[in-house]
Amino acid sequence: MTIEFVPATRASSKARIALAGPSGSGKTFTSLALGTALSDNVAVIDTERGRASLYVGVNGWQFSRLNPQSFSPKSLTDALAVAASQGFGCIVVDSLSHYWMGVDGMLEQADRRAKGGNSFSGWKEVRPDERRMLDALASYPGHVIVTLRVKTEYVVETDERGKKVPRKVGMRPEQREGIEYEFDVVGDLDLDNVLTVSKSRIPALSRAVIPQPGPELADTIREWLEQGEDAPDAMTYRERALQLSTYEELLALWTEVEKAGLLGAPILDNADKPTVLGDFIKYLGIQAKTKAGAQ
């Protein structure tokens, strides 16, 4: 294996945004405000019993929705594959916390797969599903916005009249530790709908405090994302794969997709079944090799 360093280049990309906050902080509203400003073709994966639909028509917002009842990591990967095939320019997952602590989420999956009371065996089995889900979120061919519930508690503060009053504050997001590493922008919303950016790859948003974030924030994000060279997305690679006929060609494409970091991109295969791009190219390669051997 040859190790070769090459000049770094920057490709244009899509937004990866996480909004965390307690109940009542405006996570759904803010995610829709950003999503509809970033794309005119938005889909919401609504885990909150259809509550996002209450905002249809607000500020002219129109979007499609999916209301899942089960929150296994695999089901989110599959939903993203269908969304990609239908060309949604922005996906809102409201909330990603359900895929951690909801019905069939990571916690339930790990408990269910534990063998002989050994919880580590359960986590070992379910981690690949989680990794596949996170790869699908990272490589979706459009913008991705997720909301995160946070554990809340009350603190006692002194108000302007000198009286002790309780105030609800958000604590750690209800997701696996380190989930923020998967996103370009991570912000915490408070009960006044003020966004405090806790992590940003966008210099202009570093440590920003933004009251009632909306289209102006989306414009800042879009401007930064577009400062790069155009690069193929998962759907472009899928179409290229379908046009290739030899194992060698498909192997070369698989290597190119690996370098682009899109092996885990969610797509539909040629039978319209959810899969990921790397597995699809590999499947086509095996078919091509088998066909060549039979001739």
Rank of each mutant, 00 (worst) to 15 (best):
M1Y: 15
E4K: 15
F5K: 11
V6Y: 14
P7N: 14
A18Q: 06
A18N: 05
A18M: 13
A20S: 14
A20G: 04
G21Y: 05
K27Y: 03
F29R: 11
F29K: 08
A33W: 08
L34Y: 03
D40C: 07
R51D: 10
S53K: 14
L54C: 04
Y55F: 14
V56P: 02
V58P: 04
G60I: 13
Q62C: 04
S64W: 09
S72V: 13
P73N: 10
K74A: 11
L76Y: 08
D78T: 06
Q86M: 14
G89W: 10
V92E: 00
L96Y: 02
M106K: 00
D111V: 10
G116K: 11
N118S: 13
N118A: 13
V126I: 15
S139F: 00
P141Q: 08
P141F: 08
V146F: 05
L148V: 01
E153Q: 12
E153G: 12
E157A: 08
T158N: 07
E160Q: 10
V165A: 11
V169I: 14
G170W: 03
M171N: 07
D188M: 13
D188R: 12
D190N: 15
D192Y: 10
V197L: 09
S200G: 02
P215H: 11
E216H: 13
E248L: 07
A252S: 15
A252V: 07
E256N: 08
E258S: 14
P266I: 02
L268I: 06
D272G: 06
K273S: 13
T275L: 12
G278R: 03
G285F: 00
K291E: 04
